[in-house]
């Protein structure tokens, strides 16, 4: 496995918005991390990137092991060599990654010059190649444009080119297509999938969109209130979901064959991080809730086919 996360707990002051998170990913694989706002999926990405200290958080417990290197507690200098190099991040809003005052081409060059030690000319040639690879029309012209001269989809391609410039092995993509129109989203998703398969990268795709997950991922981890509540192959998640939350989540997405009124919303709402229920965090909304759910925190139990479920009543249905 290229990356293994075990028992990860992220703390902010007295709160732990991410708790006991575990998953792994290998080269050539796409792992989807799905969840709604506040599920801790983005914080998990930030923890992997070693950027928690920048937003006032810390790793309280657990391991993040990347190709034999323990990232939790790694000194900043060593993290910096990995970040943008062997591990790259693609953010939701391209303007988080782009400098609005700088032409886009040289921004792609930076990672290659820093991490691969290329000179300016070699870095430029490499950037142009990457841009052509991402189907950016007329790369030599676009190279000299500023971000504001590009459309949203084009900006996101530049961000992907920046991420690829340092020749990464692991891509962490945090909602990479959420801000884009559907036709553009479809193009970007397809580009990302092709990259992973062709270059043998590993990609962690963080999203709230079950449609994107179904169309791209090999394996999926579903998060709720800071915990992984189910983890399985993508087909198993959609055809044999075992956690009541995963089952409910799938039922509230409109599908082509549904008629009006057949969508079943989940009652209630996601609890606040400062006010989590005791026991299983889904218990106030769960149709299968029992007494034990209020006292015991379910751990992820993994059964045949590497299908893990964190539910005390998974066999009750």
């Amino acid at each position: 496995m290229l990356l293994t996360v075990e028992g990860l707990e992220v703390g902010f002051g007295a709160f732990s918005p991410v708790d006991d998170v575990a998953f792994s990913i290998d080269r050539g694989e796409i792992l989807g991390i799905v969840g709604e706002s506040g599920s801790g999926k983005s914080l998990t990405a930030i923890a992997i990137m070693g950027l928690l200290s920048r937003i006032g958080g810390r790793i309280v417990a657990g391991r993040i092991c990347f190709d034999g290197i323990e990232l939790a507690g790694l000194p900043e200098a060593k993290l910096r060599r990995l970040r943008g190099g062997r591990i790259a991040l693609i953010t939701q809003n391209p303007m988080t990654s782009l400098d609005g005052m700088m032409r886009v081409g040289p921004q792609i060059d930076q990672a290659a010059r820093l991490h691969l030690g290329l000179d300016r000319r070699a870095a430029r040639a490499r950037s142009l190649e990457l841009m052509a690879d991402l189907r950016i029309p007329d790369p030599a012209r676009v190279y000299d444009l500023y971000p504001h001269q590009l459309s949203g989809g084009m900006k996101q391609r530049i961000v992907i080119a920046m991420a690829l410039a340092g020749d990464p092995e692991l891509l962490v993509a945090d909602e990479p297509t959420t801000a884009l129109d559907v036709t553009v989203q479809a193009q970007i998703v397809q580009i990302l999938v092709e990259l992973v398969k062709r270059r043998g990268l590993a990609m962690i795709l963080i999203t709230h969109d079950m449609g994107v997950v179904a169309q791209t991922c090999d394996r999926v981890a579903v998060m709720y209130c800071g915990r992984v509540i189910e983890r399985a192959q993508v087909n198993a998640i959609f055809e044999d979901p075992r956690h009541p939350y995963t089952q409910a989540l799938i039922r509230c997405i409109p599908r082509r064959d549904m008629t009006r009124g057949s969508m079943q919303p989940i009652p209630g709402m996601v609890p606040n991080v400062a006010n989590q229920p005791a026991g299983c965090r889904f218990n106030p909304r769960c149709p299968r809730v029992a007494d034990i759910c209020h006292t015991e925190i379910p751990g992820l139990r993994v059964s045949a086919g590497d299908h893990g479920v964190a539910c005390l009543r998974a066999d009750a249905a």
Binding site: T183, A186, G211, V212, A214, Q215, R255
Partner: peptide, 24 residues
């Protein structure tokens, strides 16, 4: 048709090649 093709069905058994729209 292109809009419909770009809509991701939440069903991993229905993975489809997306008709790529080129041009601006």
């Amino acid at each position: 048709r292109a809009l419909l093709d770009s809509t991701f069905e939440p069903d991993p058994r229905q993975r489809r090649t997306i008709t790529r729209l080129s041009g601006e």
